[in-house]
Design a protein around this nucleic acid. Structure first.
Lengths: 347, 347
DNA sequence: GTGAAAGCGCTAACAC
DNA sequence: GTGTTAGCGCTTTCAC
């Protein structure tokens, strides 16, 4: 279909060999200034661009980095992706985004496809289904640079970038407690995800600090991280139908928070009159909600940036890196009306 | 870094030539059933996967399709992308997503990069800055299959998939009129985008039908399609500060709609008490807003699916396609409280 | 039915 | 300073 210009065309036109042209183009010091100029000008004139596929085949690298997230239709991840691109773009890397839709199988396929396409490194946030890490471990052991962000893998030793989930959850829960609420439900994702564990601990710690016993009935897991609205709705129903029903729910995920509000609205439960809500979300619209939603917001853009910087550093390191680091960034608590239990909303 | 298994390894291990192995793997009919079985089983056993880069270099195609959108952090586009992936994945294509952030330069870079990476085709929604189409025209003339969706290019003849923007805008505007409002502002994107033009025409047609003269003061363009909140805020300010200020605003874009609500909230203007709002958006949260937002919703997922089917059909067509089609899908109007001018909101 | 060899676009070791 | 050649992994003539 295309007849792109190759180094051969230049060589032929200028009566040179392909290697001379190649060297001239990449500024090899052995080439005379004259020839160099000739080649460069001609290449410019006919708008020559090297074929990156040929380069990848030769160099076994592609100047691109692969990203694995569950969904781009998620405020946290779309913001993180923007952070990733802002760095990658300036450093000459292209970004390939793939979605797992919270499916382990999809994650494996995506990771393998990107590896076989010679991505230079991977930025990974695990799917909510992922427990077996061998697909990543294998590549990592072979030397493929991987940086985890958000949902990280404990058993793979590499750089990781996360929000301070423990503190974010602690702050939100304590805020609810300080508003006079003692019965606080917790709606969260699959039990084995790093973020789930950390946020649960923060929640428990806040309860403990204020001498509130942890009530296992108040803990609800949605294994699909809010992707399946029915799952969320059932979890919410369970909570509000408890004999000793909670006065607030602390929600531990972006999709879960919005899903929870939609479920409550559908069930006719008024927020925060009947139940108060505070949740993790990076939605820009939390303040537009009815009622405006109390949120824990993560520095998603920054997390994306830092993870990308770390990855590029790994990629470009001349020596195998053995010292790894886990960067933790603070979340921010935005207190809005949704957490004021018992108060009706009037605009 | 990697030492992936190649066809050579199999050949060596089995005492065959690489060409025999290659033929056996792709089921060449000249190969004896015996050899074929031998090769296939061994390949399976050592987990052989052909190197897609080598294939791309040879075949000049990559089994991947490139997507150009302004932003993934946009409900419409993230849903469209899910539609795209749902088809591409099943047909054996991988999807490469790029964002323009509404920048023409970024669009050119992204398109060229994907072309040089031998994407088999392109799914394009133009950036709000794009007026010059030569970067796409060039590739299209060379035979690269391109399908436009959402923001389409009039001057490039190919398949296109769009929502019925005219009717969507007409319906929303007429709904406002039928609610008793005659002074309706219109907040929209750059004047040259296809969606802007179509939605403006729908808006004007509804006014005309009800004998309301078009007032140029009521028309506000945000050239960055809602990406820059200040731009939105200024446009909103302009409208509410008019001596004969509108009683409603019909907003013609996803980011614009939410941006407009945020601006009004910041300016202390109550919706719909002081001003009614109806807008294009694919947000799943429109019903959670305060007040719940009257929206025109596009079948984004379906649009993504159809565009992808059309593109794959172009890619796989044996003969050059000369008959092109523009598919138009209906929007849906969701009437909620935000369009009830003069009514205060009580939850 | 199978193997040898060329070639996709490029780079680099090795001539001269 | 420049040309020749081999090779990245694969497919595909062309021989036999």
């Amino acid at each position: 279909m295309f007849e792109p210009i190759t180094i051969k065309d230049i060589a032929k036109a200028l009566g040179l060999s392909t290697s001379t042209v190649s060297r001239a183009l990449r500024g090899g010091y052995e080439i005379s200034a004259e020839t160099k100029k000739l080649v460069l000008e001609y290449a410019e004139k006919i708008n020559y661009h090297p074929n990156p596929i040929a380069l990848s085949l030769k160099e076994r690298r592609s100047h691109s980095i692969g990203v694995v997230v569950c969904e781009v239709a998620n405020n946290y991840f779309s913001q993180a992706i923007n952070g990733i691109e802002s760095i990658a773009y300036n450093r000459g890397y292209h970004v390939i985004i793939t979605q797992t839709h919270e499916s382990y199988d999809r994650e494996v396929v995506n990771v393998q496809h990107m590896a076989s396409r010679s991505v230079d490194g991977l930025l990974v946030s695990l799917s909510s289904e992922t427990q077996d890490l061998s697909h990543l471990k294998y590549l990592h052991d072979k030397g493929l640079p991987i940086v985890f962000f958000d949902r990280v893998a404990a058993e793979i030793e590499t750089h990781k970038v996360v929000a301070n989930n423990y503190k974010g959850a602690f702050d939100a829960t304590e805020h609810l407690i300080q508003s006079g609420i003692r019965k606080i439900g917790h709606l969260t994702s699959s039990w084995y995800l790093s973020i789930t564990i950390e946020r649960l601990e923060g929640y428990k710690a806040a309860l403990a600090k204020h001498n509130i016993p942890f009530n296992a009935d108040y803990l609800q897991h949605c294994d699909h991280g809010g992707m399946i609205q029915d799952e969320v709705e059932n979890a919410v129903k369970h909570l509000i139908n408890l004999p000793d029903k909670p006065e607030a729910i602390f929600v531990a995920g972006d999709r879960l928070s919005t899903g929870c509000l939609i479920a409550l609205k559908k069930l006719g439960v008024k927020v925060p009159l009947d139940i108060a809500i505070a949740g993790f979300t990076n939605s820009d619209f939390a303040e537009l909600f009815s009622p405006p939603l109390t949120t824990v917001r993560q520095p998603a853009f920054k997390i994306g940036q830092i993870a990308t910087e770390m990855l590029i550093q790994l990629i470009e390191s001349k020596y195998p890196v053995t010292e790894f680091e886990t960067k933790m960034l603070d979340t921010e608590l935005f207190i809005r009306e949704s957490s004021e239990f018992g108060v009706p909303i009037v605009q």
